[in-house]
Nucleic acid binder design. Structure first.
Lengths: 116, 116
DNA sequence: CATTCATTCAACCTTTTGGTTGAATAATAC
DNA sequence: GTATTATTCAACCAAAAGGTTGAATGAATG
């Protein structure tokens, strides 16, 4: 992406890819080397290596070099930022819409509420 | 993105763009027409219209047509999913690393903890 | 009805993304 | 010292993303 991205931008962008979210998930069980990490994925090691670098750039992964092996560790701090941003909207969850929302519901609109 | 994406994929992908996150933020104050929405952005109306469609595709925005005007409303349910996914990692925030993590900290590694 | 206004559609363009393959580098093992 | 192993670097590629402009559609307005 663009040059100067905010931390939040970087985190969201990094997490937008499902493979990278799987990597994050796998790293909760402890450190893994790049090769270990790549093992269950149906893509080249190189591809995984790139994904790791994206996560690293977003601060979601920390790398510890030990000889030729690179151990990756989850660093969840950026996830906290994502959670913080997201939970700003808690009051809008539950479809319990505030004043305006309910008003609009009443005047029928196109109400096919069952979608998604 | 690809054909069949999960809801979570769609939500994360939609939120990866800072413009779209701004749109979401603006919609907390109530419904807006596409034109209103586009007004503060330094890009064409068409570009904003596209962003809205992405958000709609991810279920983050609901559209209500009234004559020629389209009123957009926030639908935060997908944000809840994002929050849920994210908060799986709460226990990793705070650098209070679990068993393995602390073990690794002890054997020094390359510990320049102050970054980001 | 002719205009203007609100919006999308369609085509196009450039940059980014996500993947590939084939070296290069550098540490370990034989 | 020569393989082998772990990883990155570099070049390339196709597809997607994010933007543009110009035209189409369809309501509202004079």
């Amino acid at each position: 992406m663009n040059v100067a991205m905010s931390n939040l931008d970087l985190a969201f962008a990094a997490l937008a890819d499902p493979t990278r979210r799987r990597i994050v998930a796998r790293l909760t069980r402890g450190e893994l080397r790049v090769t270990d990490l790549a093992q269950p994925f149906a893509m080249s090691l190189n591809a995984v290596s790139k994904h790791v670098k994206v996560l690293e750039g977003a601060g979601l992964v920390r790398r510890r070099r030990e000889g030729r092996e690179h151990y990756l560790r989850l660093r969840a701090a950026p996830l906290r930022e994502v959670a913080k941003w997201t939970s700003q909207y808690e009051r809008f969850w539950n479809q319990r819409l505030d004043a305006l929302g309910t008003f609009l519901d009443q005047q029928q609109g196109n109400d096919d509420e069952g979608s998604q």
